[in-house]
Simulated scan of single mutants.
Amino acid sequence: MNGIVDGICARRSVSPKRLIEPGPSLVELHEMARATAAAPDHGRLGPARLVHIQNERRDALADVFAAAALEAEPKSDTARIEDARQRSRNGACLIAVIATITEDDPRVPPHEQWISVGAAIQNVLLTAESFGYRAKIVSGARVTSEAMRSAFALKQSEHLVGFIAVGSYDGEPKELPRRPVDEVLLEWAE
């Protein structure tokens, strides 16, 4: 019925383990950043930003993932630590999403800023799809760890939201049920 809506509805997340090369070019990454800046943003606070982790920096990030795993579970065994390290290497491209939330803005409450961050993430996912890639955002306890906060030099008002893995996928993503329209769209009755 509508190409844009059909594209949005066809989007599916694919496990970062399955997202292989090629990944997005620098030009395509710039377009993802442009789409991030196009998200609804009451007050023009720009609460979302992206940090591209270049592939040659993935081993350094693996150390941070391992430290975050140990922080969450100090008695982690070697297998769990190695699994954490591997997660930093999944996906052809890895992008950290950082939110800067201003708690005391009288015009724009925090929940509106978070809505903007969520819209920015969706714009990145849809832009990746428009280039023929698949993408998935992953988070988990690691994103709030001191190890991650330190690695990304986050200020008090900044939050590591998660990582968007982007890459090529040779196959069809799992078909997942979507909520029926009549559960999503209701009529207001006083």
Rank of each mutant, 00 (worst) to 15 (best):
V27M: 12
G118P: 02
C93M: 10
V5T: 12
D77A: 03
L94P: 06
R149D: 05
L45D: 03
G171N: 05
Q156Y: 11
E103N: 10
R85N: 04
D63M: 08
K136L: 15
A48G: 02
P24L: 05
A67R: 07
R80S: 13
D41W: 02
A68W: 00
I53L: 04
R58I: 05
S13Q: 08
E158G: 10
L70I: 07
E112D: 10
G46S: 15
L154D: 00
E21C: 14
S25L: 04
A35Y: 08
P110K: 00
A72V: 03
E190G: 15
A128K: 06
P40R: 03
V64T: 13
E158P: 06
L61F: 06
K75T: 15
I101E: 00
F152Y: 07
G7I: 09
A38R: 07
K136P: 05
L186H: 14
P74V: 01
R57F: 10
A128I: 12
S139V: 05
F131S: 04
A10I: 09
S157C: 14
M1G: 14
R49S: 11
V161D: 03
S157P: 10
V181H: 12
A48D: 00
D105Q: 02
I53W: 00
S157D: 15
W114Q: 01
S116Q: 02
L45T: 11
S139A: 13
V64W: 00
I4G: 11
P173V: 10
P109A: 01
W188A: 14
R87M: 11
Y133H: 08
G167N: 07
G162L: 02
G91M: 02
I115N: 13
A120E: 00
V166T: 07
G162A: 09
I81Q: 04
G43P: 01
D63S: 10
L29S: 10
A39H: 00
S168G: 13
E183K: 14
V51E: 10
V143Q: 10
Q54N: 12
R87E: 08
P74R: 03
D6L: 08
V184A: 09
D59T: 13
Q156V: 13
S130H: 02
R57M: 11
D77Y: 03
F65E: 06
N55A: 15
P180D: 12
E103F: 01
K75L: 11
E31W: 09
G140F: 00
L154R: 02
P74T: 05
G171R: 03
E172V: 15
V143G: 11
D83P: 05
P40Y: 01
T78L: 15
P106Q: 02
I98E: 00
N90I: 04
A147I: 04
R178Y: 08
A96H: 07
G43F: 03
D182A: 14
L125N: 07
D104G: 03
I98Q: 03
V124M: 09
V117I: 02
A37P: 06
I20G: 12
E129D: 13
G23W: 00
R179W: 08
A66Y: 02
L154I: 05
E103H: 06
I81D: 04
L45I: 11
P109T: 01
P74K: 04
S150G: 14
P110W: 00
A141K: 15
I164W: 00
Q156H: 13
E146H: 14
I137Y: 06
F131Y: 08
A128Q: 08
L50W: 01
D182V: 09
G46L: 06
R149I: 11
V124W: 03
E172I: 13
G162I: 03
Q113N: 07
A119G: 12
P110H: 01
R58K: 09
R18S: 13
